[in-house]
Structure formats: C-alpha cells, structure tokens
Nucleic acid binder design. Sequence first.
DNA 1: CCTTGCGCTTGACACCGTGTCAATTGACAC
DNA 2: GTGTCAATTGACACGGTGTCAAGCGCAAGG
Lengths: 204, 204
Amino acid sequence: MSRDNSDTEDRILEATLAQLESGGGEAVRMSDIAKAAGISRQAVYLHFPTRAALLISATHHLDRIKESDARLAASRAATSGRARLEAFVEAWAGYIPEIYGVAKALLALEHKDAAAAEAWNERMQDMWEGCEAAVRALARDGDLAEGLSETEASDLLWTLLSVRNWELLTRTRGWSQDRYLKILQESARRVLVKEQGCPNRSDG
Amino acid sequence: MSRDNSDTEDRILEATLAQLESGGGEAVRMSDIAKAAGISRQAVYLHFPTRAALLISATHHLDRIKESDARLAASRAATSGRARLEAFVEAWAGYIPEIYGVAKALLALEHKDAAAAEAWNERMQDMWEGCEAAVRALARDGDLAEGLSETEASDLLWTLLSVRNWELLTRTRGWSQDRYLKILQESARRVLVKEQGCPNRSDG
DNA sequence: CCTTGCGCTTGACACCGTGTCAATTGACAC
DNA sequence: GTGTCAATTGACACGGTGTCAAGCGCAAGG
C-alpha cells in the first residue's frame, strides 16, 4: 500500500489548513490548496467533490488533531455550576484561535453553500449543548440568573462565545487572547449567575 | 427635467433595498436588482460602478429613510448613565431589523470586497462611538463596572449589540424581537454597570 | 423640422473561480 | 508484459461581475 490513497488525502487536508491559517487574508482557492499540497488542481477533485466538502473534511481533520472533545471534557469535571461555567468558557476560548481559519472559511461559505452551513451548524449545535450543560449545572445549584429560562441562558452564552464575537474583540478591537478570556469569563458570570443581594462573599 | 438622472438612481436604490429585504435568502445579483428596478442590468452600471458601490449607496439611502441619527439622538437625552445605556440599547435594537437585509449583504461581501468592508466598518465605527458615549455617561456617574476600562466596556457593548448577535438570537435561536430587547438590556446592564450588592467591599 | 444630447437598450465579450471531462503518463502488482 | 489506478495536462461549461460598442427614442432647441 505504498501508493496509498489516504496519504494524498491527508496532504490535501494539511495543505488546506495551512493555507487557511497562514493566508489569513482569505480567498483560498482550490488551486492554492493544490499548489500547497504539491499536486494539480484536478487531483484535489479526485479526493473531494467540491470545495465545500473539502473544507468540511478539513474541520473534521482539525478536530481529530486538536482533540476538542477532551478539551471540553475538562470543564465537565468541575463541581459547582459556577466553576463549570468558568472552565467551559476557558476551554472554548482556547479552542477558537485554533479553529479560526477554518471557521472563517466555512462561515464565508455559509450563505451560499447549504452543506457548509450544515457542517458549521452541526459544530455550533455541539457547542450549544456544552453551553446548555454549563447552564444546567448552574441551575442545579440555584445560581442561574432570574428572568432567564435555561434555554435563553444557553442561547445567550452560546452567542457571547461565538467565533464572530471573538473575531470582533481580538481581531477588530485588538484585545489580547488573555484579556478576551478574562473579560468573557467575567461577563458570562455577570450575565448568567444570579445577582446575590448581600449575604456572603462575592467571588469563589 | 423629466428625464432626470437621479430619478432612476433612486429607483435602483429602492429596488436594491427591496431585493435585499424580501429575498432574505441571499444571493441578490445585479440582474435581480435591475429587473426589480425595471431597467437593464447594464443601466445599473451607468449609475453605480460596482456592486459594492451600489450596496454602499443603498446603506446611505437607508439611513436617510430611517433617520438613524434621530433615533439614536433620543438615547442621548437620557440623564443618568444607566438610563442612557438602556435607551441606547433600545434604539439600536430597534434599528437592526430595519437594516438587517443590507447589513447581511454587506457582511457577506466583507471578506472579498474591500469597499464593502470599508462601508460596513464606517457604520460600525459610528455605532462604536454611540457605545462609547453611553459608557462614558456610565463612568461619569461612577457606575461603570470595575475591572473594565472605558474602551473595553465600549468594545464589549459594541460586540454584544452586533448585528450578528442579533441574527444568532432572533433568526437562529428564534427569540422574539421583544425578548431580544429585554434580555440584551438586562445583559448590558449586568455586564457594564457596577455590581452594587454589598457596600462593604474593597473601596476606592 | 431635423439635429444634437443623453439615458437607456441590446448583445457581445473578458475575467475569474468552480467543477467536469477525456486522453495520457507512470508506477506498482500480479 | 499487462492491468490497474493515482495523478497529470489541457480543454471546456457555467455563473456572476464588469466592460465595450452600436443603436434607439425622446425632448430641447437651433
């Protein structure tokens, strides 16, 4: 099996990710990817039917590499709802920069390619479930802010942590990743955790 | 002056807005706009050099119609910083649905057309200044949350109120406009306004 | 009345990027 | 050797933007 099919396939995927990340300035063409992978443009089509399919595969490939599951699992270990929220935000915030290149490409395709939209929605659905789990833990502790249903709270957290918000704050407004993380943790806490009148300490 | 130049120009702009709004499902082509305006595709180019330029003009046209300035001016009238924040969120939240069609088209172009990106950034800059003004009013009252600089607070509010967040919450997650407004006002307050629970904390 | 100006029309075309197709090459396997 | 199969080269269709040239129709105005 020296002339292995999946060998080239991997090279294409790697090249795709490399192009997406390095050439941050967008507009990654099939020919760019082919060149980066050291093959002809047409050869790419022997492995992936469309650009959208390739990008989708690239995200899956990226997931395999980055082990997103393991990362988010850590947040599940936290005991209190509040700790869990904090851990979840941290895990996700660390994840975004790594997937940003692909995410952006997929997002750009979203409005014209149903499959790409589908792929992205799928990931966002996973993400939403993570949010929901954190919110539920909060609710279990009786710490969920008043005036928000669990669904609304999940939606809100999910929105707060969106890739586009990360993009706005770090790319457009120039926040450091560290500042982003700190402020988003704090904001998530303020938005989702019940305001405790006076009784006990303010932070844990 | 019956065969007036700016007459057709207006018709094109109206048609553009109409297409953008009605055909919510994206992909508004130059030919679509031309057809809607009742002229040939080429005639559109007699008035606007590129699609991007047309979209930009369309946003200006929209502003003229919607009187966004007047709308936001109301928020400036509020006395306290907190009231001002609330009014600003309300004004902006009401504005988004009206500009959404154009905004989405412009946003979709952003990554491939510098001019479109420019037009959008310009508006977002205006918006940012509105956020900053609200934050400043808050700070003047000594009500700005601790741990946030005025710039950071403005960035945060600006992000919170982004069109994409509105899209996520109302379009994707199905929130009603009313619920969106209420929850965003509450969230903005929680994130930006100093937590005054216990007057017995580290003090300045 | 006929000319000039001009907004608009028709129709053709270049460019770019995606996706398709056909014929060919070259290597490894049996 | 021959068959198989990945990959190559080169051509092409398509859709959308933007350009160009020629012509049409209407109103003003000498």
